[in-house]
Design a protein around this nucleic acid. Structure first.
Lengths: 215, 215
DNA sequence: AGTATTTCCTAGCGAGCACTAGGAATCTTC
DNA sequence: GAAGATTCCTAGTGCTCGCTAGGAAATACT
């Protein structure tokens, strides 16, 4: 009799496939993905726990078992996105100087491949412009590191004789970062009329053409 | 006796100076300014009517006399900001072609003069990335017009012989807009480590140097 | 078989939200 | 000075929010 009862409720949402801990991890991942989607399209304050939980197929109380507070959920979403972007950056890290700058031309195309993560970055950074919060510190640090990486590449390119002129590596690094961010925003706001890949490639080749040593 | 009663309450918040309609306009302006400040720092959803009203020196119900809904208040804030930016653009509109592009170098400095309006733009555009809302349509249209203005300037500069090469005016317009927006974000996120004025000037002179006809 | 653990739900709490109803105080107009 | 218009408040409504308490069901352990 108990075994029959088990079989009757086998189709229940909780007992789908696999072991207990497997289902737990899968639910957790589903919540993270739903949270990324809703945070990116509605912002942190705009997305409710109930809506995220519904998208993940559970209730809000069920969600709070995996992430004890809404802020914890946000931090997990950010940590996951950060990890993915670090992986994308590692493909670039083995080169330096001018080759690194040249590879930045493909960064626009990379971002176009993941519109949700791109929109998440725009939304969350704009939602945390003013200081104090943990998230604001994260974005400030990330921009600092990104600019430092590019500035170092500009310096090395000049030292190697690949670039010339009296340009300021810090300014060039900030400007290249700005093009990436600005195109991101226009791409999201223009229904595809603005291409990040095309704009970024044009910018990088333009910078290199302008700063190339004259023979 | 009534006159004495009047004098006793003369220091009341409502009866400060001037006529009735003057006070009304002043309060309305105070509400608009408080709303701009709070919307820019906390976003639309993050700023409550009570907080805005408190900053303006009245209650939330008093605020709703001037602006019947929160969305009406937002539209008024946006309309006011739009008017100010139109005025700033009109100083540029009398020139065309290369001179217009050269004047864009000063746009970074102009934005630095009004950090609140700049942050408001970043916050609200990021909060309305996805389509449908009235505000989203506003931003899409504004970017379209701005890019069109710059693209036309690039075309005219080439026609006049001030610029040369096989550059794409649409791409150059999008990229120049992107630098402006991207520097805006970094400026707000870097405690002044990134200068919008310096970056924008470097970019404009760089573009002109790169596209100048070779003698 | 019995116990413990993991996972998720039902139910509800207190706070904050945008917004409303109705009235009071002030100023203008006659 | 009475009548009307303007401006703003007190009080409250219904809703949604993040979060908690406690339990139920399924699985794993012994």
């Amino acid at each position: 009799m108990p075994s029959m009862a088990r079989m009757q409720v086998e189709a229940d949402a909780r007992s789908v496939p696999g072991t207990r801990q497997q289902r737990g991890r899968e639910r957790r991942a589903a919540v993270l993905e739903a949270a990324r989607r809703l945070f990116s399209s509605q912002g942190f304050k705009g997305a409710s726990l109930a809506a995220i939980a519904h998208e993940a197929g559970i209730t809000d109380a069920g969600l709070l078992y995996h992430f004890p507070t809404k802020n914890d959920l946000l931090l997990a979403v950010i940590a996951e996105g950060d990890r993915e972007q670090d992986e994308a950056l590692e493909k670039v890290r083995d080169v330096q100087g001018l080759p690194l700058l040249q590879r930045m031309a493909e960064f626009g195309a990379d971002l176009e491949a993941d519109p949700i993560l791109t929109a998440l970055d725009v939304t969350l950074s704009a939602e945390n412009l003013s200081g104090g919060s943990e998230i604001n510190a994260y974005f400030v640090g990330r921009y600092d590191r990104f600019r430092a990486m590019l500035a170092q590449a500009f310096e090395e390119a000049r030292r190697a004789g690949d670039l010339a002129g009296d340009f300021d590596p810090a300014v060039e690094a900030a400007n290249m970062t700005a093009v990436l961010d600005g195109l991101r925003l226009q791409w999201l706001l223009s229904d595809g009329a603005v291409s990040m890949a095309g704009g970024m490639r044009a910018y990088v080749t333009g910078v290199i053409a302008r700063l190339s040593p004259k023979p």
